[in-house]
Structures are given as C-alpha cells and as structure tokens.
Design a protein around this nucleic acid. Structure first.
Lengths: 189, 189
DNA sequence: CGACATATTGAGATCCATCAACCAATGTGG
DNA sequence: CCACATTGGTTGATGGATCTCAATATGTCG
C-alpha cells in the first residue's frame, strides 16, 4: 500500500517538466475557512482539491445524521469520486475542518490534458487504483473487525487523526456511535 | 452507475478494430471446473478473467472462515485488484462456483498494449473508476443498512444471485452469519 | 461569565453471533 | 439399491456488542 504510494510519487517526479507546467496552468491555489464547504450535496464535483495545509472531511447525510467517509490531510486529493467521474450531482459534502489551503484543478481542463499527455492518463489510473485498494481495505475492516479493533487500527495507522478531529467525526468514520467510541476510549486507558 | 457501464460499453464499441485485434492476440479462452481456483491466496494475480459463462466468487479467509467479497457473472472481470495492480501476493481466492468459461488476458501483455494504445489506458481507468464507485456503494451499505436491508437491497438489485448461489456465500457477502440470513428469509415469506 | 459545542456515563432495548440440534436433498461405495 | 456421509439449510436458546435516549460534565470562545 505504502509501496504503491511511493511508486506514484516516483512517477510524478519523473514526469516531463512540460507536463508539470501544463498542469500548473490549469491549477490555482485557494483557501477555505474552517467549516466552509469545498463541495455540497447535489452539486457536481467539477474540481479536484489537493490539500496543501489544513484538514478536511467528506460526509453524507443519513436520516439527518452526518456520516464521515474520508478524512483529508496534506497531499491528499479531496473529491467525491462518483460525482467527479460521472459529472453528476454529489451525495456527499466536502468540508474544511480547519482553515484549509488547496490546489484546485478543473475537471474539464484535466480531461483535455489527459488526452494530450498519456502519462497523465496513467497517473490518473494509478491514483484511482490506489483509492480502490484503500476502499477494499476499509471494507475488509468493516467485514472482520469489531468497533474496538477498528479504533485501535486507526490509532496505530493514523495516530494524528485523533488529535485534531472531533470524536463525533471519528465515530461515524468508524461506523459506530459517539457514545460507543467514548466507552471504547475509556476502557483503553 | 448503470449509465457509467453504458458509457464504458459504448467506448469499447468505438475502439479502433486494430486495438481489438491486438487485444485478442494477448487473450485466450479457458475453462474451469466447478470448485476449482482461478486464483489462490499467496499467488500473484497475473491474469485478468472476463467471464463468458458460469459464476465465480472472490473470498478471503478470516479465522478460517470464508468471507465472500465479490460475485462474478457473465461479462464481469474477475481479478484480485490489490494483487493485480501491485503484482504482489493475493490475500484472496477466486473460485469457480459453477463450471466457468473465461477470456484470460495476461497482465504484462496488457501493460505493454496500454502504453501502445492510450485508448486502452483510458478504458482501464474507466473500469477502475467503476469498481471504485461500486466499492463506495458497498461501503455505504455496510455503514447505513441493517442486515435485513442489505439483503433486500441485494434481492432488488441482483435477484439472479439468490437463485444460483449457496446461502452461506451470500451471508458472508452481506457480512452476516448464515443463521441470521436464514432467519431474515423466513421472516420475509 | 454565559452559551454552545463536545464528550462522558448510565440504563434499557435491539440486533446479531454463536453454539447446538435437527432436517432435507444429494451422492457414493459396497 | 440401500446405508451412510456430505452438503446446504433451518430453528431454538443464550449472550454479547452496540444503539438509543437521557442526564451530566467538560471545554471553549465571544
């Protein structure tokens, strides 16, 4: 998993400088205040956001309850995949948890660039593969681990998450209630 | 979701015949007997299998128990993604549930062809996106639906599954025990 | 300080897993 | 062709994990 990330980074480093310049031409830097939305439900995800600083999350509403599906840190790519890929209305929100700075890249412009530079198509494929593997792993966790095990797993793999993010977000990310998470933590001390 | 499948099919239909011929050159037809394995754990997934007839499933072992993660029917692509993409040992098995006929395509040969024909790179991307969206949807179901709801959802979306596949496979596919599934079905009648 | 968001704790209800017994259909060797 | 094993499915009893509702505590920020 990490190995594959390294492969992607290596691929980016070996990209033709001309391609990188072209990418920069269709990208801008933008900031979002804590609590504001990079993407709202029913909106089409027409931009990708690479986090430069700050933290964001992706969530949807279920019976009025917010279910967090993904947490974004530096260098993560924040999009709502189903909306981005199909250019259809999103079921998800993407929200800044702290003040956030991002590199914004336009979907349409990127599509054009991909047909121009096959290396970008390949890069897009690698990143999508990585996301799919990450999803498989998450599904595996829901399939086989108890709530406590999922929490410990998160603690071990991404200890930084716990420090900066409200427990209510973490609870729904783990697929458990806030109360259960609180009890799990109490027991572990 | 279906719309995107249509888009992929349209894309395939408009592929340069030369590309299709090249694809056929690196593919062969093969059959597997019921119960036999297209891929075993610890083996690297070096082929992709497009089902022509029959049914297959993907599963892994957890505490000695088989957890079914995916069911394959006609035209589905059976691979273990993490193993295929990273060319590393698989955690999963792919097994023929009935006698199965498949079109086998070699990973390495396909990689070469992709660099030769960018349209194939694009096709690979679209198929991976589709799989990722499917995974997101499955994760959504585990996140928000009860066992009964997940079963009803499956019944509604893929009624053919129930007819040909042992309940034990379906149970683990839904993330529940065989007994619970049996009770759910009893209540629904 | 007061107000609002965030987290903890308790009690009861619910869902689902586990263990175990049992049943039906199918297949196999003698 | 029968006896028996095997596979797939059902049903019952029980316990544990987790949810929900509700009350309380803690923190944070204007």
């Amino acid at each position: 998993m990490i190995a594959y990330l390294n492969k992607i980074n290596a691929f980016i480093n070996y990209l033709d400088p001309q391609i990188l310049t072209a990418l920069q031409h269709i990208s801008t830097i933008k900031t979002f205040k804590k609590g504001s939305f990079l993407l709202s439900m029913d909106e089409t995800c027409k931009k990708s956001y690479v986090l430069e600083s700050g933290i964001a999350r992706k969530y949807y509403l279920n019976d009025g309850k917010e279910m967090t599906t993904e947490l974004f840190f530096k260098d993560d790519i924040a999009i709502s995949l189903h909306s981005y890929v199909q250019q259809s209305p999103s079921r998800e929100f993407i929200q800044a948890i702290t003040d956030v700075s991002v590199t914004v890249t336009d979907y349409q412009a990127f599509q054009v660039l991909k047909t121009q530079y096959p290396a970008l198509m390949e890069l897009d494929l690698m990143m999508t593969e990585y996301y799919a593997i990450w999803l498989e792993d998450r599904l595996f966790q829901f399939h086989t681990l108890t709530a406590t095990e999922r929490y410990l797993f998160l603690l071990q793999k991404q200890p930084h998450i716990i420090q900066y993010i409200p427990l209510s977000y973490i609870a729904s990310y783990l697929g458990i209630s806030l109360e259960t998470l609180s009890r799990i933590r109490a027991k572990l001390i």
